[in-house]
């Protein structure tokens, strides 16, 4: 509790008056495609299940959101379906946005920063010894959002459309050692390759577009589409894209 006190204090002094808490839970099935060039230059992909959980604090001038998600399953190549790759893709994002525009405006926005963490763990069922790998990236970057509220003058009261984009600028990147990706490949391995990475080594774009419908004063339902790309251009080159369609229930209190 003592550790969280400064954070809670910061929230309270930064957001006098208006304040809202939201929690949300979502089902997030999606399609993942990945090329891991240490294993193959073929792309592995599949439609897989996913889930998400988030908490959001909205003050008069800023919002703070923490979201967690997982997407995972068995991926296959398009041309050689006998080969498979089991993947678990975890995300944790903390986003702080300074509000732009008034609460009563149709168009509102936000600009700020984000701390984004991704952990992608892969095991390859059909090979020996280099049968596991992972990518870990903890990034500080920029974030922005844009929202449009379809109020009663536009004929769709209670509906809104929003978009949020996050772009990492500086990242702490961890991958297994160059020549050793056995089933023991672990995030805590002592020989892992670790580096601070800019755009040239680690590039990521994550965008979420959401159509929201206020159901009541406390509840809202959203349909969201998230696309999340990252590319690692290092000794081990990895490219991954995921597209998620989420059904989200938000509770405001």
């Amino acid at each position: 509790m003592r550790r969280f006190t400064p954070f809670i204090f910061f929230l309270l002094i930064s957001c006098p008056g208006f304040a809202q808490w939201q929690v949300a839970i979502s089902a997030q099935p999606g399609k993942i495609s990945i090329i891991d060039k240490d294993f193959s230059s073929m792309s592995f992909s599949a439609i897989v299940p996913g889930v998400g959980l988030s908490g959001k604090y909205e003050g008069a001038h800023s919002t703070h959101e923490l979201s967690l998600s997982w997407l995972g399953g068995s991926l296959k190549t398009g041309t050689m379906p006998r080969y498979s790759l089991n993947q678990h893709y975890f995300n944790a994002d903390y986003t702080w946005l300074y509000k732009l525009g008034s609460h009563d405006d149709a168009w509102t926005g936000g600009a700020g920063g984000a701390l984004q963490v991704l952990y992608d763990k892969r095991t390859y069922a059909d090979v020996i010894n280099n049968n596991a790998s992972f990518d870990f990236a903890a990034s500080l970057g920029l974030a922005g959002s844009l929202s449009y509220s379809f109020n009663k003058n536009n004929g769709l009261p209670g509906w809104s459309l929003s978009d949020q984009l996050g772009i990492p600028v500086l990242s702490w990147l961890v991958q297994p050692p160059y020549g050793d990706e056995s089933s023991a490949a672990s995030l805590t391995g002592t020989d892992n390759r670790k580096k601070m990475a800019g755009f040239s080594s680690f590039f990521r774009l994550k965008n979420t577009m959401s159509l929201d419908r206020q159901l009541s004063s406390h509840g809202a339902l959203s349909l969201a589409y998230t696309w999340d790309y990252y590319k690692i251009d290092d000794l081990r080159e990895v490219r991954q894209a995921s597209h998620r369609l989420s059904l989200i229930y938000r509770l405001t209190f």
């Binding site: 230059s41 080969y83 090979v127």
Partner: peptide, 8 residues
């Protein structure tokens, strides 16, 4: 170690 070529 194994590697899968682009033709499988």
């Amino acid at each position: 170690r194994n590697y899968l070529l682009s033709n499988g």
